[in-house]
Amino acid sequence: MSSIPVLLDVDTGVDDAFAIALAASTPYIKLLCITTCFGNGTLEQSSLNTLKIAELLKLDVPVAAGARKGIISPLRRGLGREAHGDDGLAGRAGKLPYPRRSLLDMGAVELMAGMIGSCPDNVIIASTGPLTNIATLLLAHPELHDRIDGIAISGGAVFGGNLLPTAEGNFAADPEAAQIVLTSGVKVLMCGLDATEKAYATFEDRERLRLAGTRASDFLCDTLREYAEYYENTMLMDGCPIPDAVPIAWIINPSIIKGTPYYVEVDLNGKYTRGSTIADTLGVRDRRPNVIAATDIDRRAYLKMLFDALTYYTDR
């Protein structure tokens, strides 16, 4: 079986950690590198958390840091603090040792470009944070566009929003970057709130995930506890969504997700709608679809995939 080369860009983040764990555990994916972006917290925080998670999972992949803030938008401190905690890992980052491995001495975009350039096969890029690094990659490397088979994004929403009434956090954090990525001509798989809010884990589901029973899985499941409090007690949802692993799940097995092709752009100018994804659901704009939007997900299959990933990381 041949595995798909994947580059992962993250702003770790409780659910980003699950995305990393899923991407690194499956034989379907060859994880080439991880790059970090501001988002759930500052760039420093997301980089440190990424290194800690990589070490917890005993990964041997290069990690490089990228954007400190959005292309235009000023940094909004702690976008995800309510759910992810002040340290981005539900207050538990301190329980992981300071990582022995460090960031590469090059920028995220240089690392990504080098990896794509030297990979014999075409790659897929997966993103779980603001799209600043990936937009910069696409701007700076037009020669690599046709080496990228797809960009799988955790972000956006055909309908609804979270940070704003109609805007999802990763897109709202850098609307210009999202617009650059969506209109680049590279195929985009947009895992927006339409699907990711359905990719939730109830208390019972989380107890089942815990049965994986390794040091790594225990840590990840622990972080879900405080994270879930926000979604269940404040947002009154049935469980906590784990959005950021959805694009990885899509790469592994597209059949568990329902995708609908749309022409989608990002609003850059609205007083209330800046950062919103405008999907032409009515087909009134007469443009060819540039995005396949995830609109539904087989939640059971997704959680099974996450469980399998957690059992991969043995204590040896």
């Binding site: 954007a67 292309i71 920028g107 600043t132 910069t136 701007l139 700076a140």
Partner: peptide
């Protein structure tokens, strides 16, 4: 702009 985005240093 592309230069400073790609090479922040």
């Amino acid at each position: 702009a592309t230069a400073v985005l790609k090479y922040p240093a």
